[in-house]
């Protein structure tokens, strides 16, 4: 298998703050990797760093590398990035309403991606869009083409956003909470659609979500994030069956399994620290049941290996 995306030791600064550090993972062609964590864990910031969008929020990469298909993106100039974004890397954002122009018909909004990135003329782009809408199981694609966003349901709008992400035939999709704004039955349909696309088109995907159940359903690999760092990385089976970081274990224990027996929920005491108040040592130690003196003093290293890794002084002994 060949690696499509490799992130190593990624570190991001915004002004004097360092909201993101020590993020490492690699994504092989055809795989889906889940970036999972609670609010403020840094998962969206990781996506912005990969997409070269940090300047929009006054941020910059201050360490580590982002290698996409063999070339390092951290030093890529903006014009080259512009070709990549929407071209070889497609983005699916959380809220379809803010990704679509409310004043334009949805079809031409998809056309423009293929015209810009693939150099298609007006009518070729249009034929391609209608074909793509059909592939996304949108009924009567030729008439949907002429509708405005407000005439479509939430699930249908998200399909249009997926069509925009696919229009230039990308190799990598970055989906930032693609189903969070949707009802569960619609979420299930969109997850199925994304899984089918990954398989049929040989795509790779970074799926950003706060929902461990979505990760369990749709991902091959997982990066668990907490307070601006990656705390655990591994295959989806390893993460759920044998979590090595106490945060991963605690996070799984917070999810109601109403459908498979009534294990009592265990919350996590305390709250996620804000970026200005990250604690010394391990950032999870004030909430961790296993914490010892070393945890408050020394930040545990996070070294990604082939089998995955955990940033915990007791990673081998979590029971």
């Amino acid at each position: 298998m060949s690696t499509i995306l490799k992130v190593e030791g990624l570190r991001v600064a915004i002004g004097a703050l360092t909201p993101l550090s020590s993020v490492s993972f690699s994504l092989e062609k055809g795989e889906t990797l889940g970036l999972v964590g609670e609010s403020g864990s840094g998962k969206s910031l990781t996506a912005m760093a990969i997409m070269g969008l940090l300047p929009l929020i006054g941020g910059r990469i201050t360490g580590g590398s982002v290698v996409f298909d063999g070339s390092d993106l951290t030093a890529l100039p903006e014009p080259a990035y512009r070709k990549l974004r929407g071209g070889r890397i497609g983005l699916i954002a959380q809220n379809p309403m803010t990704s679509l122009d409310p004043l334009k018909k949805v079809g031409p909004q998809i056309d423009v991606v293929a015209r810009l990135h693939l150099g298609l003329d007006r009518s070729a782009a249009r034929d391609r869009t209608v074909e793509l809408l059909g592939e996304l199981r949108i009924p009567e694609p030729a008439s949907i083409y002429h509708l405005y966003p407000h005439q479509l349901s939430g699930g249908m709008k998200q399909r249009i956003v997926i069509a925009m992400a696919l229009a230039a035939d990308p190799d990598l999709l970055i989906a930032d909470e693609p189903t969070t704004a949707l009802d569960v039955t619609v979420q299930a349909q969109i997850i199925r659609l994304l899984s089918d696309l990954i398989r049929d088109r040989g795509l790779s995907m970074v799926l950003i979500t706060h929902d461990m159940s979505v990760v369990a359903q749709a991902c091959d690999k997982v990066v668990v994030m907490y307070a601006g760092t990656a705390v655990e990385y591994g295959t989806v089976a390893a993460i759920f069956d044998d979590p090595r970081h106490p945060y991963t274990k605690a996070l799984i224990g917070c999810i109601p399994r109403g459908l498979a027996g009534a294990q009592r929920l265990k919350g996590i005491e305390g709250t996620v620290p804000s970026v200005a108040h990250y604690p010394q040592g391990c950032r999870f130690h004030p909430r961790c049941l296993r914490a010892e003196a070393i945890c408050a003093a020394v930040s545990p290293p996070f070294i990604a290996s082939h089998d995955g890794a955990a940033a915990c002084h007791f990673a081998g002994a979590v029971g």
Binding site: R137, S153, G154, G155, M156, D183, V184, T185, V186, Q187, A188, Q189, I191, R192, D211, M212, S213, V214, A216, Q217, V236, A237, F240, I252, I255, R257, L259, A260
Partner: peptide, 22 residues
């Protein structure tokens, strides 16, 4: 609704049947 609710366990992945419309 039950079939659309994912489980926090990759061993319990669901086969999602297409549901017409919204």
């Amino acid at each position: 609704l039950l079939d659309s609710t994912f489980q926090p366990d990759p061993k319990l992945r669901r086969r999602i049947e297409p549901l017409a419309g919204e």
